[in-house]
Amino acid sequence: MQRVNMIMAESPGLITICLLGYLLSAECTVFLDHENANKILNRPKRYNSGKLEEFVQGNLERECMEEKCSFEEAREVFENTERTTEFWKQYVDGDQCESNPCLNGGSCKDDINSYECWCPFGFEGKNCELDVTCNIKNGRCEQFCKNSADNKVVCSCTEGYRLAENQKSCEPAVPFPCGRVSVSQTSKLTRAETVFPDVDYVNSTEAETILDNITQSTQSFNDFTRVVGGEDAKPGQFPWQVVLNGKVDAFCGGSIVNEKWIVTAAHCVETGVKITVVAGEHNIEETEHTEQKRNVIRIIPHHNYNAAINKYNHDIALLELDEPLVLNSYVTPICIADKEYTNIFLKFGSGYVSGWGRVFHKGRSALVLQYLRVPLVDRATCLRSTKFTIYNNMFCAGFHEGGRDSCQGDSGGPHVTEVEGTSFLTGIISWGEECAMKGKYGIYTKVSRYVNWIKEKTKLT
């Protein structure tokens, strides 16, 4: 034993070699072989497995989906700052455009905790909710729209109204504003409101030439003092309507412009014939205590009207009353817009006519005020429907199939267009061939041609 100890002390290297040989010859039971080890760690190889990531292109799944990435790591994937920024906006807080917040056709661009709407022409605001041009839906104005110097929408209202708090709607500024039905039992019968379409306001006024200088022999019209197929109006439903009495009662109609003036057809009036105007009328054979009678003290036909040349060209006249009318729910003026808007309103496509005229061709006159909704007829169809001249200051309205029309005794009465609950004068009943005849239409004086003249002559002093 002493000898062994001496050998170990003198030859430590020998001992180490012996131990190493023993270990190498022993069977290893701690580690699995290569094949079995792979069965336990069965993990798919990654895209760049075996390579240094710093030297390969980034992978979106590896960089940002398996674990949260930084902007720089995302930049490695896209290799483009702009594309990385677009991805980053949604990656950080989701897609803010998912709810489609942009209105009126706006395009949404996502941002971090926010979004941006790219608005089409005519709109602005956070969600493109603000109209900035009158060309689109009248700028959301209830009545009139004008573009300011910086191309912003400025709404306005006709006389007797003021802008509401929203700067879009119009509200009454006087007790009985024009064009409004205020009798409670008839307010439910107000005709369907007309909503502004998209309009090209630059070209809204037709490029028409008034044929002022045409000389033409007097034409022989049949029954051209021209509501057939209409309905009984309720008291106060058309408070701007008046009836004219002269040699015979209810020979023509008219509309209240203001307390002192009536507008009617020029062919209705004769110099030297006494005319009485009755406002607030409903049943011409009954006294309903809503009527107001006034005498006409002055007749002003349009300066281009000449019955000797043509009885229905420039067929418009103004009547001055001896005493002002007292405005109330049964006696209310009709609204008159400017030339541009009167023309736009007419193009809405349908209007209402009213009167006490004959209820059928050569038949009896109506006792109760009649009204009828009539569609506008395109000019080409209008011209083809008659052998008589249709001037540019006239328009056609009615039904091709016949059966409904204005008729004798309705002449001078109103053709009105309702705009968001307020009625505007767009025409004056003038003439036609018979009444409600198939293929024939009622012919009306186009008020847009005469609004400046009306307003100039009827100013209240």
Score class of each variant (00 low, 15 high):
residue 328 N to G: 10
residue 5 N to L: 13
residue 223 D to K: 08
residue 382 C to V: 02
residue 39 K to D: 15
residue 366 A to K: 12
residue 299 I to T: 13
residue 316 I to L: 08
residue 429 I to T: 13
residue 156 S to T: 13
residue 219 Q to M: 13
residue 333 P to N: 04
residue 248 V to G: 02
residue 31 F to Y: 15
residue 254 G to N: 01
residue 344 I to T: 12
residue 79 E to A: 15
residue 99 S to N: 15
residue 101 P to A: 05
residue 296 V to M: 02
residue 54 E to W: 05
residue 120 P to W: 03
residue 3 R to T: 06
residue 242 V to W: 01
residue 238 F to V: 07
residue 331 V to L: 02
residue 234 K to R: 12
residue 149 A to W: 06
residue 70 S to E: 15
residue 42 N to H: 13
residue 384 R to T: 15
residue 174 V to H: 06
residue 320 E to T: 00
residue 220 S to L: 12
residue 272 G to P: 03
residue 41 L to Y: 15
residue 367 L to N: 12
residue 313 N to L: 10
residue 78 F to E: 15
residue 164 A to Q: 07
residue 10 E to L: 13
residue 26 A to N: 02
residue 357 G to K: 12
residue 245 N to C: 03
residue 367 L to M: 05
residue 278 V to C: 04
residue 326 V to C: 09
residue 437 M to R: 10
residue 378 D to A: 07
residue 329 S to F: 05
residue 422 T to C: 06
residue 5 N to Q: 12
residue 140 R to C: 06
residue 266 A to W: 00
residue 29 T to D: 10
residue 361 H to I: 09
residue 157 C to D: 00
residue 104 N to A: 04
residue 412 G to I: 13
residue 344 I to A: 15
residue 69 C to Q: 04
residue 210 I to T: 12
residue 214 I to S: 13
residue 238 F to S: 03
residue 152 K to H: 10
residue 312 Y to L: 07
residue 203 N to D: 06
residue 343 N to Y: 03
residue 338 D to T: 14
residue 404 R to T: 12
residue 333 P to T: 03
residue 228 V to F: 08
residue 151 N to F: 07
residue 294 R to F: 01
residue 354 S to A: 15
residue 435 C to D: 04
residue 251 F to M: 09
residue 445 T to I: 07
residue 255 S to C: 07
residue 147 N to G: 14
residue 426 T to R: 00
residue 314 H to Y: 08
residue 244 L to E: 00
residue 342 T to P: 00
residue 302 H to F: 08
residue 204 S to R: 11
residue 232 D to H: 13
residue 140 R to N: 13
residue 258 N to F: 02
residue 350 S to H: 14
residue 272 G to W: 03
residue 204 S to T: 10
residue 250 A to N: 12
residue 279 A to L: 01
residue 242 V to P: 00
residue 194 T to V: 12
residue 116 E to P: 02
residue 170 C to F: 01
residue 454 I to N: 01
residue 391 Y to R: 14
residue 372 L to T: 14
residue 156 S to W: 12
residue 145 C to R: 01
residue 47 Y to I: 11
residue 414 P to T: 10
residue 318 L to C: 03
residue 160 G to E: 03
residue 108 C to E: 00
residue 128 C to P: 02
residue 322 D to E: 06
residue 404 R to H: 15
residue 141 C to P: 00
residue 177 P to C: 03
residue 220 S to A: 11
residue 21 G to K: 03
residue 351 G to C: 03
residue 394 M to Y: 05
residue 272 G to N: 03
residue 133 T to G: 12
residue 137 K to A: 06
residue 19 L to F: 12
residue 449 R to F: 13
residue 370 Q to M: 05
residue 209 T to D: 11
residue 58 G to R: 10
residue 228 V to Y: 12
residue 153 V to G: 14
residue 399 F to E: 15
residue 61 E to Q: 10
residue 82 E to T: 10
residue 287 T to H: 06
residue 218 T to F: 13
residue 409 G to N: 14
residue 124 E to L: 10
residue 316 I to K: 01
residue 235 P to H: 07
residue 136 I to K: 14
residue 224 F to K: 12
residue 451 V to M: 03
residue 60 L to K: 09
residue 25 S to G: 09
residue 37 A to S: 13
residue 380 A to I: 10
residue 286 E to D: 11
residue 164 A to S: 06
residue 437 M to N: 05
residue 122 G to T: 04
residue 279 A to M: 01
residue 372 L to K: 13
residue 279 A to K: 01
residue 391 Y to A: 14
residue 228 V to H: 11
residue 409 G to I: 09
residue 51 K to A: 15
residue 357 G to L: 07
residue 400 H to M: 11
residue 297 I to V: 09
residue 442 G to H: 11
residue 300 I to W: 04
residue 55 F to T: 15
residue 96 Q to N: 13
residue 327 L to D: 01
residue 369 L to M: 15
residue 325 L to K: 00
residue 100 N to D: 10
residue 81 T to L: 07
residue 57 Q to G: 11
residue 305 Y to C: 01
residue 290 T to R: 10
residue 130 L to W: 07
residue 422 T to V: 08
residue 247 K to S: 02
residue 336 I to F: 05
residue 94 G to H: 10
residue 87 F to R: 15
residue 191 R to K: 12
residue 357 G to V: 15
residue 112 I to P: 09
residue 448 S to R: 02
residue 215 T to I: 07
residue 204 S to Y: 12
residue 127 N to T: 12
residue 441 Y to M: 10
residue 454 I to G: 00
residue 78 F to T: 03
residue 309 I to L: 12
residue 54 E to A: 09
residue 2 Q to T: 08
residue 293 K to S: 07
residue 217 S to D: 10
residue 389 T to M: 08
residue 284 I to G: 08
residue 202 V to R: 11
residue 253 G to I: 13
residue 234 K to L: 12
residue 177 P to I: 01
residue 162 R to H: 10
residue 439 G to M: 04
residue 313 N to E: 09
residue 165 E to M: 13
residue 42 N to R: 05
residue 192 A to D: 13
residue 27 E to A: 07
residue 370 Q to N: 07
residue 32 L to R: 10
residue 423 S to H: 12
residue 428 I to P: 01
residue 91 Y to I: 11
residue 430 S to Q: 07
residue 458 T to R: 01
residue 309 I to H: 10
residue 385 S to C: 12
residue 300 I to M: 07
residue 217 S to K: 06
residue 381 T to K: 08
residue 407 C to H: 05
residue 203 N to C: 03
residue 49 S to W: 09
residue 3 R to P: 10
residue 349 G to R: 07
residue 438 K to C: 08
residue 287 T to G: 09
residue 335 C to N: 01
residue 114 S to T: 15
residue 83 R to I: 10
residue 142 E to P: 03
residue 57 Q to W: 05
residue 156 S to Q: 11
residue 146 K to C: 04
residue 402 G to Q: 15
residue 50 G to I: 09
residue 249 D to C: 00
residue 394 M to Q: 05
residue 435 C to Q: 03
residue 354 S to M: 13
residue 211 L to G: 13
residue 261 W to T: 01
residue 450 Y to H: 03
residue 165 E to G: 10
residue 459 K to T: 14
residue 28 C to L: 00
residue 289 H to E: 14
residue 16 T to F: 14
residue 288 E to I: 05
residue 395 F to G: 01
residue 287 T to D: 13
residue 442 G to T: 11
residue 32 L to E: 14
residue 264 T to Y: 00
residue 444 Y to Q: 01
residue 452 N to H: 12
residue 210 I to A: 11
residue 329 S to K: 12
residue 110 D to L: 15
residue 399 F to Q: 11
residue 277 V to L: 03
residue 52 L to Q: 15
residue 125 G to R: 02
residue 120 P to M: 06
residue 102 C to P: 01
residue 137 K to L: 10
residue 460 L to V: 04
residue 55 F to D: 09
residue 131 D to T: 13
residue 210 I to K: 06
residue 440 K to Q: 12
residue 166 N to P: 02
residue 53 E to A: 09
residue 323 E to G: 03
residue 255 S to R: 00
residue 354 S to K: 08
residue 405 D to R: 14
residue 344 I to F: 15
residue 285 E to R: 09
residue 386 T to E: 07
residue 181 V to M: 12
residue 449 R to T: 09
residue 437 M to P: 08
residue 44 P to D: 14
residue 431 W to M: 12
residue 305 Y to F: 08
residue 69 C to H: 03
residue 75 R to T: 14
residue 409 G to Q: 13
residue 343 N to Q: 07
residue 150 D to C: 04
residue 207 A to W: 13
residue 257 V to C: 02
residue 446 K to W: 02
residue 393 N to L: 02
residue 447 V to K: 00
residue 165 E to S: 10
residue 213 N to M: 08
residue 100 N to L: 10
residue 55 F to N: 15
residue 128 C to R: 02
residue 123 F to L: 07
residue 336 I to V: 13
residue 255 S to P: 01
residue 353 V to D: 02
residue 281 E to P: 08
residue 344 I to N: 07
residue 175 P to E: 13
residue 450 Y to T: 01
residue 37 A to D: 04
residue 192 A to E: 11
residue 212 D to G: 09
residue 226 R to V: 11
residue 203 N to T: 11
residue 404 R to I: 14
residue 134 C to H: 03
residue 5 N to T: 13
residue 133 T to I: 14
residue 50 G to M: 10
residue 418 E to D: 15
residue 5 N to S: 14
residue 230 G to R: 11
residue 249 D to Q: 02
residue 118 W to M: 11
residue 17 I to S: 01
residue 93 D to S: 15
residue 267 H to L: 02
residue 374 V to Q: 05
residue 224 F to Q: 05
residue 448 S to A: 14
residue 173 A to P: 00
residue 231 E to Y: 05
residue 344 I to P: 02
residue 50 G to Q: 14
residue 383 L to G: 10
residue 126 K to Y: 11
residue 419 V to R: 06
residue 455 K to R: 12
residue 307 A to M: 11
residue 448 S to P: 02
residue 34 H to E: 08
residue 283 N to Q: 09
residue 418 E to F: 09
residue 41 L to K: 06
residue 394 M to V: 11
residue 365 S to L: 06
residue 193 E to V: 14
residue 36 N to Q: 11
residue 286 E to G: 09
residue 451 V to H: 04
residue 459 K to V: 13
residue 432 G to R: 13
residue 18 C to D: 01
residue 361 H to V: 15
residue 263 V to Y: 00
residue 121 F to M: 08
residue 383 L to H: 14
residue 404 R to E: 05
residue 99 S to Y: 12
residue 431 W to N: 08
residue 390 I to Y: 13
residue 177 P to L: 01
residue 50 G to W: 06
residue 173 A to Y: 11
residue 17 I to Y: 13
residue 329 S to D: 15
residue 21 G to Y: 12
residue 275 I to Y: 04
residue 209 T to A: 09
residue 440 K to R: 12
residue 251 F to Q: 07
residue 364 R to Q: 08
residue 182 S to C: 03
residue 216 Q to H: 11
residue 368 V to Y: 08
